[in-house]
């Protein structure tokens, strides 16, 4: 996929800097992502990947810099704001409430209410949610016969599929996936990668964070490499091999190709 500069990025970060106390987690980070594009965000532990997605999703607020969504400068007070703006984040291993049903998880934080007075009193429309959850998951290619089971009854791969399905179902602009293939077997990982491709087909901008470099090379269009809180490389995926990517991450080949 070629990136035409005249297009408006759906998500743009300009000169983001973030400190935890005296530790600088992000330094002058600027990135752009476009609709229908999968970006791989890679880096060693402590490179700033988690910090960066926390800034995008509104968990943390940057000390300086701008977050621009669809051309509009935004300021998040909470994760709720970023969700409302169409950005969905799937955190590593912790995106779901295991004791709630699949349907309740899909609608977590966006519970469907019953109509009329009961709805105004805060009553949830459980049946409606289960039904719509089924449809929403089917739309992104995940079939479930019974959404009433709790997530704790699912296997790791099934949970991840539900979590990603949930993120894709709600995302309007951007979906952030933090280590979605972690702890998954080869077959389950392949299914997750398929779901990511289906998100791209739907015109979403996907930020894919992973330690698994073959996965990153397989599914992404562009790769951004972070090291010690800075962007050290931002280039189309075709310019990388596993070896050159590893070298860039560790800093062993500062000026590749």
């Amino acid at each position: 996929m070629t990136i035409a500069d005249e297009r408006t990025p759906v998500l743009e970060l300009r000169n983001i800097t973030l400190h935890y106390g005296s530790v600088e987690a992000l330094h002058d980070v600027s990135i752009k992502s476009y609709a229908g594009e999968v970006i791989g965000l890679v880096g060693d532990n402590g490179a700033g990947k988690s910090s960066l997605i926390k800034v995008i999703s509104g968990v943390n607020t940057a000390d300086s810099g701008e977050v621009i969504v669809d051309g509009v400068r935004r300021h998040w007070r909470s994760p709720h704001d970023s969700m409302a703006a169409g950005i969905e984040t799937l955190y590593q291993d912790s995106g779901l409430a295991p004791d709630l049903s699949i349907g309740s998880n899909i609608f977590l934080g966006r519970e469907k209410r019953r109509s009329g007075l009961l709805g105004r009193l805060g009553f949830v429309d459980q049946r409606g949610m289960e039904r719509e959850a089924l449809e929403q998951l089917a739309r992104v290619g995940i079939t479930i016969p019974a959404t009433q089971r709790t997530v704790s009854e699912l296997s790791g791969g099934q949970r991840q599929a539900v979590a990603i399905g949930r993120a894709i179902a709600w995302a309007k602009h951007v979906i952030i996936l933090d280590e979605p293939t972690n702890h998954l077997g080869a077959r389950q990982s392949a299914e997750v990668l398929k779901v990511i491709k289906s998100a791209r087909e739907q015109g979403l901008s996907v930020l894919f964070i992973s330690h698994s470099l073959p996965h990153v090379l397989e599914v992404t269009d562009r790769i951004i490499v972070l090291r010690l809180g800075r962007v050290v490389r931002d280039a189309p995926t075709s310019e990388f091999t596993v070896e050159s990517l590893l070298g860039t991450i560790t800093g062993l080949n500062e000026s590749p190709s």
Partner: peptide, 20 residues
């Protein structure tokens, strides 16, 4: 919804916070 949030927070506080 109030009760649902109660379960969600107890089940996974981080997920609840991330869900807004």
């Amino acid at each position: 919804v109030y009760g649902r949030y109660n379960f969600a927070i107890g089940s996974n506080e981080f997920a609840a916070r991330a869900a807004g």
